[in-house]
Design a protein around this nucleic acid. Structure first.
Length: 266
DNA sequence: GCGACAG
DNA sequence: ATCTTGTCGC
């Protein structure tokens, strides 16, 4: 018998998370990871050059963002929001929110098990009615491969929805020797003086993501990592083009609107 | 043993 | 993630 955990009755919320659940989640991540694609795998172009725009290929136009808000009291009451923006204008062209009750705890390294189900439901609603603005790519507030097992919530959602995804972290998830102080060193290193996307290379030698200073007023970087079916280079390019402020617009709009919706409907 | 730990 | 106003500065 592995992990008998329930004996430990003295501790509180965190011990509600039993070893058996932990193992199930590890196995699920391991299994889903087999379908992960970490290179560009889509047909559209970004439209960065006039040539591409006049060439008549399909362009990236609809870019989605998702976020969840919670209430202080009643921590199970949550609002998930999906927005779709026009990549060229950054206008919000679609918005949908859902109030749900979430009983899955937040456990570092397993964010997707808490948040992904509501995002999949929001996406399914769009798909079921063949909505013309269904996103070609999705940004998630949470990491992609910048994760203890290389499979953060952006990867998880990307694989389940079969959509290209990009992970956006507002704080660093310490992994593979990448700590706040180590990243600070990298950011301040002389060779990175004029570099706007600093590669995050862990102790393993793998590049797990990039730190970027999105808006001019912010010294605090955001952390971009590959979710699914997008290369890091493309992810960085797309994120930079959607940043009016520190947090890219798809995430920022989803965040604002989910918070508003929860306030107005509770 | 202690600290760290996306949202 | 959440509670929370003004305020200092470009």
């Amino acid at each position: 018998m592995e992990g008998r955990y329930e004996v430990d009755s003295a501790s509180s919320s965190s011990s509600r998370f039993h070893f058996s659940e932990h193992n199930k989640w590890l196995e699920a991540q391991d299994s889903l990871k087999k379908n992960l694609v970490t290179e560009d795998n889509y047909t559209w172009k970004l439209g960065e050059t006039e040539e591409e725009e006049s060439n008549g290929g399909e362009l990236l136009k609809y870019i989605g963002g998702v976020d969840i808000s919670f209430l202080k009291d009643d921590p199970s009451a949550a609002c998930g929001t999906l927005v779709v923006l026009d990549f060229a204008t950054l206008d919000v062209v679609y918005e949908d929110s859902l109030i749900v009750s979430i009983d899955v705890p937040y456990v570092p390294g397993f964010l997707a098990f808490r948040e992904a189900p509501i995002f999949l439901e929001l996406l399914k609603k769009m798909q079921d009615c063949c909505h013309p603005f269904y996103p070609q790519l999705l940004m998630i507030d949470g990491n992609g491969i910048l994760h203890p097992r290389g499979f953060g919530s952006a990867c998880h959602l990307g694989v389940l929805a079969n959509l290209p995804t990009i992970g956006i972290g507002k704080n660093l998830h310490h992994v593979d020797g990448l700590t706040n102080s180590r990243v600070k060193e990298l950011v301040e290193a002389e060779e990175n003086f004029n570099v706007d996307a600093i590669p995050l290379i862990g102790d393993s030698g793998n590049t797990l993501g990039a730190a970027i200073h999105s808006s001019k007023g912010s010294f605090k970087p955001i952390f971009v990592s590959v979710g699914h079916r997008v290369s890091l280079a493309s992810a960085v390019e797309i994120v930079k083009r959607t940043c009016k402020y520190r947090v890219p617009e798809p995430i920022r709009q989803a965040d604002i609107r989910s918070r508003d919706y929860l306030r107005r409907h509770h």
